[in-house]
Amino acid sequence: MAAEALQSSTPVVLARGLGRRFGDFTAVGDLRLQVDAGEVFGLLGANGAGKTTTIRMLCGLLPPTAGEISIDGVDVVRHPRRARSRLGYVAQHFALYAELGVRENLQLQAGLYGLGRGAARERIDWALAHLGLAGLAATPAGTLPLGYRRRLDLAAALLHRPRILFLDEPTSGVDPLARQEFWELIYQLAGSGIAILITTHYMDEAVYCDRLALMHAGGVIAGGSPEQLLARPLPTPLLEVRGEHCAACARWLEHWPEVVEIVPHAGYLRLRLRPGTAPDELGRRLRAEAARRGQTVTGVAPAEADLEDVFVALLEATGEEE
């Protein structure tokens, strides 16, 4: 009983002091990361922040220059092949064989993971049924639509019952509906106890994750659940401006020193203000200026922050420190 409890509390992925240098360039430095069973963990950051380097190290594809990684208790650096049988990895670009059929690709994967004939057939049938590929078994992988190719990637990575799935930008380029379906699959998998580490640059997908880590310049600058991150006080206040002449307003607003950024939306503008600006006072001045110019502003109100605002603020704060 005690041993079992201990087992389930062991994180599936645990990385400590993880670092990777390429010559003088530090791609990733002193990273700590933990993913538990059944958890969807999101790794966010701009291109070049170190996401892919991190994921490659975690999968044993790239040896780290510092730190240690364990996957399901197996030391990845010392026993990369043993660790590989416990993880599934889906690369950013389609890496299966385009001219082979869906089932053939899966047969290859099953063989590569050393599955016997019976086990392979059982797992392939499971994957085809579970990932909605049943009718496509004979279709060459290269002719599948991108969304289905992503499902095949998932199926291939799941045959050997990994404890963790690493997904590198799995939804990039996929249409919104297929993205939605993909996330539903991810939730199902997490529900069955598989840990999932996913990288994405779609900020709207960040809310789907149980926990997040925001990477910048090779390090994690903030982490936690989406709720925790949203609850952080934002140093830069936000203001929403509604009205008929938004575009005209934006033209003179961009010269105001308090306004850091204007994001135009359909029917309204979102303003990010300089830290320390009082939004109410600025709102009054804005209405007055609009009235003077004969432009209609129907509403000015403090806006609710979303994750993107939080990340932008965090990145800006980091940039200023540097």
Partner: peptide
Amino acid sequence: GNLVMLRTTP
């Protein structure tokens, strides 16, 4: 790019 996939298998 198939090699990337092969490298992540045992």
